[in-house]
Design a protein around this nucleic acid. Sequence first.
RNA 1: GCCCGGGUGGCGGAAUGGCAGACGCCGAGGACUUAAAAUCCUCUGGCCUGAAAGGGCCGUGCGAGUUCGAAUCUCGCCCCGGGCACCA
Length: 834
Amino acid sequence: MADYNPQTIEPKWQKIWEESGAFLADAEPGRPKYYVLEMLPYPSGTLHMGHMRNYTIGDAVARYKRMRGLNVLHPLGWDSFGLPAENAALQHNIHPREWTNANIAQMKAVCRRFGFSYDWRREISTCEPEYYHWNQWLFLRMFERGLAFRKRSRVNWCPKCQTVLANEQVVDGCCWRHDDTAVEAKDLEQWFLRTTDYADELLDDMKQLDEGWPERVLAMQRNWIGKSSGARIRFRLDGEGETSIEVFTTRVDTIYGATALLLAPDHPLLPGLYKDQPNLPALESEWNELRRHILRPADLATEKLGFFTGRHVINPFSGERVPVWVANFVLMEYGTGAVMCVPAHDQRDFEFCRKYELPVKVVVQPLEGAALDESDESIGEASVEYGRLVDSGPYTGLASEQAIEKMAADARERGFGQAEITYRLRDWGISRQRYWGTPIPILYCGSCGIVPVPDEQLPVRLPDHVAITGQGESPLAGIPEFVNATCPKCGGPARRETDTMDTFVDSSWYFYRYTDPRNGRAPFEPAAAAYWFPIDQYIGGIEHAILHLIYSRFFCKMMRDLGLVTHSEPVLRLFSQGMVQKGGVAMSKSRGNVVAAMDIAERYGCDTGRVYMLFAAPPEKDLEWSEQGIEGCSRFLNRAFRLVDRHAERLRQDQTAKPAAFAAGELTDAERSLLRKTHQTLKRVTDDFELRWHFNTSVAAVMELVNVLYGNEPLEESVRPPVLKTCLETLVAMLAPLVPHMAEELWEMLGHKGGLAKKAWPAFDRELAREDEYEIVVQINGRVRGHLVVEAGLGEEEVVRRALSDEKVAAFLDGKQVVKTVFVANRLVNVVVR
RNA sequence: GCCCGGGUGGCGGAAUGGCAGACGCCGAGGACUUAAAAUCCUCUGGCCUGAAAGGGCCGUGCGAGUUCGAAUCUCGCCCCGGGCACCA
């Protein structure tokens, strides 16, 4: 008897797949499609168990869908990840391309070793011109429509990366790649994509994702887009001129309680405001102090700071004259960069006014509870609830909701404001001062200004030899052959843009390119994308909830407006697998607690690793890595192997024809019971793949089946070969998506030529799965008091009669009166007594 | 503060209105073996009771409620994890 040896079996089938040219069959016309994709791998050189979990889920589902007869697109691609590549260049003096390619080669080796069913022919590298060409092409289309534009703005700057970061890439005031480095602010000319144009649609279309996306991802996106409706109100500056300051507020109903107007420290009107003030030097130094504070995000959470500008504005509703202050907690990036200060009804304003001794004026009384009295010094916090307006001129007595509506309308009529919707989402800054990325296809001409590179000159290629210093400017700026160009408009000298694109641009649409990866005329043919899109199933970690998954939704809508695609959402279903932890901490290279995929493959075989990934926890939950756990999975696969091996010889030699279907009457009890268990298992596993994705219970079900088949009953005598063969074949087919190598081997042992991966998923037979008899629970007042074995489908009357006459049950009924009985077919009888 | 998860044996987890703890790990005992490993078998939530077979009670974070029946549904609390946050 042979033992299960993954070290010989796994390479054997890996080789066969490679030689047969495809891990997945070619698409057949007219068949339904399934596009499954794992989130872009990160070429850090080590595929650890966190990645493996991601890929294992995707691979199992892709294999299952193929066995169900769908055309499956399951491609493989690689991001350029400019930053690690350039860091490697700095540290080891190796070209980013070499570094990237070396890492890609390593990771591909791991993916092949594990038998992931990728379609290698559709592999793409986003860091190569054949891909970034189309990044540039799409950028130019956006430029033509004003969706790509250049402006000077304050940007987040990571001093370690020496590059600009998008807002989405700032985490807790630090760089997403360096959680120990505070992001600084810098004023730079930058290229932006106008994501805000799509803010409303990005929010609205989430309705389509309700079913297929995890709620937490949608919640994070909703939060990030941050829609709020309110009003924009103009306060005229007291004194000469018509200058006015606009504020945005969601609580215009509290405007009669405004006791000041607050400006962000970097508000553009600010320098003009106090230029005539007598105490100018003092104000300037206050201002500089405040600016210093807001430029260091870590300080933001601490203390309210501000100073009086010496100027006043007129409240357009009340006509009141209120002072203009500068406050550190007012953000220039949100709303208008100025707010009205209503201390009675906003906690931040309240704290500010208490500190600087500005008056507190109550204008909204709560509907329930004690009335507020501003003369009462004991008011400890702002009252932010809606209520009824007081001391608010003609609006006094209105409810907050009505007042908000009416006051916005009145402001519009009287010309000093209007209702407005504001978003937290900002335009996406994509300029990066890096070498290893897509060059932005723009020229600057002394006479023509900003000139796009004509399509026929694309791609603007990255020069091969650059000095990467990691300092300040874009490395491309040091290459005269790259920088110096000719203006396509006037033929004069022009300077080429030397920044490259954020690599998140690459990853925003890479999955479209898979549908047409060698296209030289366009990013992809619309028809090719139309067949495969939208993606049926995207699988990835939660870390992309904001960054990648908002960007790619934006790209989809943008490409729809370009006429490239017809759908509005790229991904129908999103699955976020939980993290793999070790010692309670997420595995990551920086923490050094990585369990490498290759080590597991060598020690236990990759199939064992795959089963463990699926079995140890439901896939959306975090998973604690356990050596004992993987030992258990190894034992299970050994048992399955020995089970098939034990019977294989006899089954191969048996000449009895296998019937197309088993008629109940022709089966012995042992045979029927075996077939029943097999089909019940098949139902559970199929349901898990179709509905729930709880692969831990699929594996448990298969383990149960193996335990039954493996048990000490001498199957050789009680079960005829065709029946046993059917059961074992079904078992092996169910194993195929989970442990593809071992399943192929077992399939061959059962006398087949191989190619289980291309076989059909076994058909479920309800009749065979049916139970003949059930154990009925007998409850008295909801407590279990007895059990009863009855034939399937036996009617209520008879079951109740038997239940009541049961000896043990009868003892409990003694002296009691039966009030009613509850009957659940094939399940229970509950007798209610008094 | 707001939003999203979650709380079940020694552990990972199963059960989504019907026997709580499937399956696996750990642990205990046994078989095989000169021995060990591997393998196989049995037991394994707690407490009480019984010589044993068995029987009883308690038990899914806490407290109420709905129901013949609640881990599951409703309400109120507690705790843990994650996300967002001077967003006006």
